[in-house]
C-alpha cells in the first residue's frame, strides 16, 4: 500500500512538473473553439482554417465539442473553459438560448466571446461571424443560374419546405434578383422536398415531365441538390437540364464530375474558421471593439461589419475545378 502511494505521488509530481513547465514557458493567448459536434466534417474543415490562424498569430487553440450535437454538453464545455480562464471563446451554437447562459457567464468573467456559423442571443457575445447573408446567397444562386442559362429560359426551384423561415428568406432574394436583372428568365414552379433526397428526386422528375422546356433546377436545401441531380441523370437529361444549388461538396462531388450538377454554392468553411479566430484574438487584445465598421483578418484582407455581424462576404462556388479540394 505504502509503495503504491509513493508511486502515485511520484507520478503526480512528475506530471505536475511537466505541466507547469509547459505553462511557464508558454504565456500564450488561449482561444477556445467550439463546434456543434466535433466529428462533423463541416466543422473539421472550419478548424483547418482556425488552426492556420492560430499558427500565424502564435496563440494556443483549444478545440473541443460534443461528439453529437448536444446543447447541454456545449454548456458544460464552455463552463469548463471559463474555469480554465481562457482569453476568448468562439462558439457555433447548437441551441441559441441554451448556450447564452453559459456565454454570459464567460463575459462576466472578462472572457471575450464571438459566435460563428450559428449565433447565440446577441447580448451573450460581442460579434457573430456571419458566413452568409440571405441576400448574398440569393444573389449568388440567381447569378450562377443566369450565367449557366445565358440569362434566358425556364427554371424551377426545390426548397426544403414552403414555410421554413430561412428558405423563404432565400427565395425572396432569389426572386428579387430575378425580377431586377434577368427579364428573359422565368421561374415556373417552386416545390418543397421536406429536406429529403428521395422526395427531391421525385419532385424533380415531376417538374421535368410537367415542364418540357425546363432548362435548370435550382435546389436551395442541401438534400435537394443531389436529389435533383439523380433525377436529371436517370431521365437522361444530363446537360439539357442543369442543376445548381446550395449544398455540401462531398454529397455532390459525383454529380459535379459526371457533369450533371454544374455548381454547388456554400461558403468557404476554412475562411470561416480563420476569420473567427482572428476576430476572437483581436477582441481579446482589444484591437477590435464593438462598433467597428470593418475588420482586417490577416491574409484574407478586409471584411465588412454590419452592426455586430462580421460578414464573411460572398458565398463560395464549388465546381469541377475546385470541388476536390474540399472534404466535408
Amino acid at each position: 500500500m505504502k509503495s503504491l502511494l509513493t508511486r502515485l505521488g511520484l507520478a503526480a509530481a512528475l506530471l505536475l512538473g511537466s505541466v507547469s513547465g509547459v505553462r511557464a514557458a508558454d504565456p500564450k493567448l488561449v482561444v477556445a473553439f467550439l463546434p456543434k459536434s466535433k466529428g462533423n466534417a463541416y466543422f473539421i474543415s472550419c478548424k483547418a482554417g482556425a488552426d492556420k490562424a492560430a499558427k500565424e498569430l502564435g496563440i494556443e487553440l483549444l478545440f473541443d465539442g460534443p461528439t453529437d450535437s448536444n446543447a447541454a454538453k456545449q454548456n458544460e464545455i464552455v463552463e469548463n473553459w471559463i474555469t480554465l480562464g481562457v482569453d476568448a471563446i468562439a462558439v457555433a451554437a447548437e441551441n441559441k438560448e441554451g448556450i447564452s447562459t453559459a456565454l454570459r457567464k464567460a463575459q462576466k468573467q472578462g472572457i471575450k466571446v464571438v459566435t460563428y456559423d450559428a449565433d447565440s442571443m446577441p447580448d451573450a457575445r460581442s460579434f457573430f461571424v456571419n458566413q452568409a447573408t440571405p441576400e448574398g446567397i440569393g444573389q449568388t444562386l440567381m447569378d450562377e443560374a443566369a450565367r449557366l442559362l445565358k440569362a434566358e429560359g425556364e427554371f424551377a426551384m426545390i426548397t426544403a419546405s414552403l414555410t421554413a423561415a430561412n428558405q423563404r428568406e432565400w427565395q425572396k432574394h432569389i426572386e428579387a434578383r430575378l425580377k431586377e436583372k434577368y427579364p428573359k428568365m422565368k421561374l415556373v414552379a417552386v416545390r418543397p422536398c421536406d429536406d429529403l433526397k428521395d422526395k427531391a428526386q421525385s419532385e424533380a422528375t415531376a417538374l421535368m415531365s410537367a415542364n418540357p422546356n425546363l432548362k435548370l433546377i435550382m435546389a436551395i436545401c442541401s438534400p435537394g441538390v443531389p436529389g435533383a441531380a439523380e433525377a436529371v441523370k436517370q431521365a437522361g437529361k444530363t446537360g439539357k437540364v442543369k442543376v445548381v444549388g446550395l449544398g455540401l461538396p462531398n454529397e455532390n462531388k459525383r454529380y459535379v464530375h459526371e457533369g450533371v450538377t454544374d455548381s454547388v454554392i456554400l461558403w468557404n468553411t476554412g475562411d470561416l474558421g480563420y476569420l473567427t479566430i482572428h476576430a476572437a484574438v483581436s477582441l481579446a487584445k482589444g484591437t477590435l471593439k464593438p462598433g467597428a465598421k470593418s475588420y482586417t483578418a490577416g491574409k484574407l484582407g478586409s471584411f465588412t461589419i454590419a452592426g455586430d455581424n462580421i460578414l464573411l462576404g460572398k458565398p463560395f462556388i464549388f465546381n469541377k475545378g475546385n470541388i476536390d479540394q474540399f472534404n466535408f
Binding site: 509530481a13 506530471l15 505536475l16 505541466v19 504565456p27 493567448l29 471559463i82 474555469t83
Partner: peptide, 28 residues
C-alpha cells in the same frame, strides 16, 4: 481529487489561478 488538484490547477496569463483547484470549478 488530489491528483487533479495538483495536475489540473494552473495560473493563467493574467496571473489568475484557474483550473481544477478553484472554488468555481468545484461548484461546477
Amino acid at each position: 481529487w488530489l491528483f487533479f488538484y495538483f495536475a489540473g490547477t494552473t495560473v493563467n496569463r493574467r496571473g489568475v489561478t484557474v483550473g481544477f483547484g478553484t472554488v468555481d470549478r468545484q461548484f461546477d
